[in-house]
Each structure stands twice: as C-alpha cells, then as structure tokens.
Write a protein that binds this DNA or RNA. Sequence first.
RNA 1: GGCGCGGUAGCCAAGUGGUAAGGCCGGGGACUGCAAAUCCUCUAUUCGCCGGUUCGAUUCCGGCCCGCGCCUCCA
Length: 472
Amino acid sequence: MPLKLYDTLSRELREVFAMDGESVRFYGCGPTVYGPAHIGNFRTFVMQDVFRRVLETSGQKTYHARNITDVDDKTIRQSQAEGVPLNEFTDRWAKYFDKDCEALNLLVPHIQPSAVAHIPEQIVLIENLIAKGKAYKAEDGSVYFKVSSFEDYGRLSRLADREITTSITERESSDEYERESAADFALWKARRSEDGENYWESPWGPGRPGWHIECSAICMKHLGESFDLHSGGVDLVFPHHENEIAQVEANTNKTFARHWFHIAHLMVEGRKMSKSLGNLHTLEELSEKGYSAQEVRYVLLSGSYRQPLNFTFDSMKASRKAMLKLRDFATKFNFNPSRGSILETEFGPFLPVQEALLSDLSTPEALGRCFRLVRELGEALERGEFEGDEEAMNNVRRGFQATCDALGLLVEPKKEDIEEIPGAVENLAQKRWNAKQSKDWSMADQLRNDLLDLGWVVKDGKEGFELSRFSE
RNA sequence: GGCGCGGUAGCCAAGUGGUAAGGCCGGGGACUGCAAAUCCUCUAUUCGCCGGUUCGAUUCCGGCCCGCGCCUCCA
C-alpha cells in the first residue's frame, strides 16, 4: 500500500514512490546551528521522521539526507560574539542538535552534509549558472541569480511576478544597488569586513555561499539532479525552496524534486512562537519543567502536519496521560519493545493505524484509532479471549511494535520495581501496613506522609503495598 | 494589498453528502478506612454567521465576521 501525501507544488495528494525503484530519496532542510533548536523546529523534523518511518514500516527503503547549515549571518555573528572559531561553534551546536534528536527518537539521517563541507560543489553550481547566463557577478564580487531568466519562478509559492517585485521594491535597501533586479537573490556573497576570517576563495573573489545554494548543491551531489521528495517548514516555501528550484532547474532542465512536503507551524498558546513573545520552548527547558522528549513528541504528533498546531501546557499534560495509557497497554500484553532499526512491519490488528498514516500522514487519526484498539484489545484480554493463544498475543505485540515504530514512540512496559528500596523506607512502609491492618488510620496516614517526604509513594493492593518513586 | 490555511464540546484535535474519532479535564459509579492507581459510565440534537444546491450539509457553492501564516535568508 503506497503512502499518499499532499504535494505543495501540485496541490494534491500524490503517491510517494522511489523513482529508481529501490529507495525513496528525500531531503529535509536541517537546522542552522547557532543555538538550541526549539520545539517548533522539531515539529518539522519529527514529521519528516514520521514520513520516513511510515515508508519503512510499509516495507519501503529510504535514503534520507538532512543538511546542517553551518555558515550564515547568525552563526558568524554569534561565534564572533563568543570569540570562538566558526567551526568549533557550529560543531558544538550540531552535537547539541543530535542529542535532542536522539531524545526525540528521530532516526538518524543516512547523511548529514554540512554547507561548509560543500563549498566546492556550490562554486561549481554557481559557475555553471553564470555560464548559462542565469546568474551574474556584481561589482562587489557577489553573484546573483537572475530571476527573470527562469520562467517558472514563483510556481511553488504561487507568488506572481508582481507580488515578488512589488514587495521587494518597497523593502529594497539602498545599499543593495548591485542587483540588477530587486527579485534577484544572492548565490555568493562577497566578503565583508564583519565576516572576519570566515570567507572562502572563489572565482569571484573571497566570500561565502548564499543560503539557498547549499541545499541545492548538497541535493545534487547526494541525491542526484532529480530526486523523490524535498521538505521543510512552510516558511521555507518562499523564498528558500522557490530559489532552490530555480537554481537547479535552470541548470539541469530537469525536475528538481518530484514532491514537496511542507509542515505547518507550531503555535504556542495561540500565538506564533518568537523570541520577542518569550514563548520559545526548547527540549531542555521543558525537561527542566519535568516533561520528557517523548511527551513532546506525542504532542507534536497530535495535530495534522498541514494545520498549525497549538502547543499548550495542558496538551503536554494530556500527552503524559496518553503515554501512560499506552504503557499500561504494553504492560498488560507483556510487550517487549525492540529499539533501533525498524524490522517488524506486521501491523496485524493495528492495520487501521497504518492505513491512517498512509493517508497523508494523518497522525491524529492514527492516534485515535490506536487508542480505540488499545481499549478494545485490552477488553478482549480481560475477557480471556487471548487465553492460551500465544499466536494471537504475538500478533498484538507485533502490531503494537509496528505502530510504535511508525510513530516513533517509545513505549516501555511498566518495570518490576528493580530500583533498590532503602531499608528504612521499606521498614516505614511495613510499619504503615501494620498500622493499617490494625485500623490505626491516623498512624497509617502519618507514615504515608513521612514516606512522601522521603520521596516515595505507597499504593495499597489487596495483599500488600507497593512502593514507587514520587514523580511530579 | 497579494497568496495560502483555519474557525468542531472546558482544552487539544480528527472526520464525513446521511446525521459528530481519540486524548485531557469534569460529573457519576466500582474498588479503598481515606487516598493513589485501575476499571465502568456520562458529557457537542451540534460543527463561526447568513444564504444557496440537495430528500438530506458540519461536510459542496456564494457572501460575511474572526483568527493565523507567508510575501528575500524564520522549521
């Protein structure tokens, strides 16, 4: 069963398939590494990850490339402010990003090429564009793409020429007179004094690549002149992806990416996430507030990728409860999760979940169906319908594994309390149990409070008590 | 202004030309000395407003109101 996914360019649902008949080669625009990524950025990366997981759990091979933007105004400025060499600075944040990705259970892309590591390729691409009359060198040594030379410009974002040029004319700053047309964009930026030592030699003199060209050069090198799918946040539709198409197609006369996948923004409490509103959340900050990356991931899956999603702390709490519900299910079925690469692809009873995902990555629908199944299967288990039927139990486990793999959720069954319970705590708890048995309620309650002060929660069962670590 | 998206219960959020998934919260019940956990159960006569098409619209069409995003380097 193929995955149908909305394509920004054609504005319709289209089947995703591997043009080479082997693996779906796709590209996701990665982070600019100048600080911690926020959960809005991660919405995009999580959805790209789900895209890949849905393909892989339906038996399709993939080849996933995600770049690291390690040279631009922000990285240069920030590294200078800290007095650190650019590469050292960006390495640090790239590692930080990797750590966050791991916490979110994002599959590691097959390659993570960096912009700086592909400067020769970018230069070649620019030279070719100049040779074809699609780009020109300006007085100061910068090189610009000549938008008027590319007929299809604006097709992805559907911005008519008038819109593109009008908005730019109004904004055009006086110091950018080098451009022939306001709509033209930089392929190569001539060195400026404030760049310091951050420049590279080129046929047009020292400078650094423009933003858009890095993704194009990387795609062409690692995925080919034409490949299956390209993706990013909606804000990249224009100008970034529009410009990428122009650069590549003006060069090759071939379709650059066959499919465009864009993820809508994450809102926070109904407003756009921004530094000035002070509502930027990072995994680290949420972790300090006691929320796990898995809970964040769940929240990010709870809305359709085509719609803005409203992030709230209420939804974080709801997500925690929902994850616990899945954990209870895993415990009941004695589920033994496998980590790492995706091997199991049998959805079995969880087939409806897979169907929802294959239908435009409908994660909310998939979660809804998952919970319904969790309830129904749990009830069937209670009724003893799985008694002695190990094969049926295994089908459930396999299907649940496939579901977790497809969504990238890590669901661990509740562990037997392997944590060492300090003797003193154990004694107190036993004392309380005794008090309870002799119906000395006030003593029992007092001891329960004492235990809580020590960080332990006691829960009573029929035959005895159970101790667990207090959390939140 | 242009392009695009949306307005569904207290909150988050699906969905469909035939009468509203799921999660959270809340109510009730079981269990409990009281709790916690768990389980059961209930909670939108209604899908921004007004018209139209239709046997029938939340779902299609038109208008209006409101919110949001993009419009040169923000995922």
